[in-house]
Simulated assay, not measured.
Amino acid sequence: MDTTSGTLDEALQRLHSSGPEFRGFLSNHGPMAVEALVRNGRQHTVHRWLDAYARKLEDVPSARDRITDANWQAALGDPRRVTDWTRYFTDRLAEQPWRAVLATWWPRLLPGIAGAATHPVIRVGHAVRSLLTEGEQGPRRAELAHALGYWAARHLPLPATVRPTGRATPAEALAALPRVADQRVTPVDGYAQLPGTPGWLSTTESLHVPRDPDAAREGLTALVRAATLTYAGHGHGNGIMLVHAATAPNAVLRTLPALPRALWADSYAVAWAAASAITAVYAADAPRPAPDAAGLTPEEIFERAVANGNEHAIKFADTALDVAAAAEDGDTRALSAALNAVRLIDTED
């Protein structure tokens, strides 16, 4: 990360003058993408990328009414209150350590992980990573307030309660998932099909979720890997939307070190439910070969995502590089998945 010029902090300050969404419902990916760029040594590209991206952003929505510790439940899941939520978390983070605020609100927000196609939890994951690795400077704390506020405003539980109690690994469970009947839909309309999709709930509940925190973290790591590799073969179902099946659980994984260990197992279970839902809604049924990444370095893979310029390609490459860093020597499948995202998103965007 860049700790001398403050590139990330400057970019976040620019972005905090814009709202979390634009064109009615599209998520502002700026804070997530610039954090990934700086994290991967591309700080020199941040402001140029942001100059182009910021043209489509919109102003911060007007505030409505003050959210308090006594009335917050009535505002949960109300996107009209997003600025009220940001102000609420800005006040809490001024009064308490950020880890304490996160520990209080994580279990409250976690059931609504599906909201806004999981973008809020992904934004939280990027914010937490920057706080953990680079310190608690003002713009980074402010970004956590914006991210938590967005999650609270877009809080949305899945339409079916998922209780994983089986013995399957993430790779096994993902491979067995059925697909919804109509995949050309918004996330909300896709989620609505899940309860009526034969085998979706039973397959989702077939996952083994250990209660031991360290084992749960290993399971979540395996889920991120399995979702990334699934994208390599099945991303052509929807090249943009399917990236979230990997980036959302990776955001949870990145947040675990800042959370009480008692929350880790439940975090894994909910991250899995979200990944399962997105996979069922957007993954192609039949696989296709992904581009071959043999002979390319992780840095070259990320550079291709940067050249593509799409925020989803950048964020997915960021996750794929995490997976590739932990892979056995010679295993380039995660890098191939990132190349596939660059190819598919270039076609769709």
Rank of each mutant, 00 (worst) to 15 (best):
A175I: 03
P79T: 05
L110E: 06
A117G: 09
D51C: 05
H244N: 12
R211L: 12
A271Q: 06
T7W: 02
W200H: 06
Y53E: 13
R80F: 00
D69R: 03
V243G: 10
L102G: 06
L156I: 00
G166P: 07
K315V: 00
A54W: 01
L131V: 00
D214H: 12
R99Q: 15
A284Y: 04
R333E: 14
T197G: 05
A258L: 06
A74E: 15
N238A: 14
P298D: 12
V185T: 14
M241V: 11
L110F: 06
L37T: 05
P187N: 07
V185P: 01
D84F: 11
A324P: 02
V128E: 02
A33G: 03
D189C: 01
N250H: 14
H44V: 08
V82K: 01
Q73Y: 03
G196H: 13
E21Y: 09
K315G: 05
D65P: 00
H29E: 08
T186D: 12
V162R: 10
D329A: 15
E328P: 04
W151C: 07
S5R: 15
D2R: 08
W200I: 05
H146E: 15
R254C: 04
I122N: 02
A215F: 03
T161D: 15
T104A: 14
A305V: 10
Y191A: 03
L263F: 00
T45Y: 01
T347L: 09
A114I: 01
D189A: 11
R92N: 08
R167S: 15
A116W: 01
L156K: 07
V252E: 08
D214A: 14
G149K: 04
L253C: 10
Q193C: 08
G30T: 09
I113A: 13
D182E: 14
P298H: 07
R87K: 12
D84P: 01
P289G: 10
P195M: 04
D212S: 04
V60S: 07
E328Q: 13
H146F: 09
D69G: 14
D349Y: 10
N250C: 06
R64L: 11
Y268C: 11
V188Q: 11
A274I: 01
A341C: 14
G237E: 08
L37F: 07
H16L: 11
M1H: 13
R225Q: 13
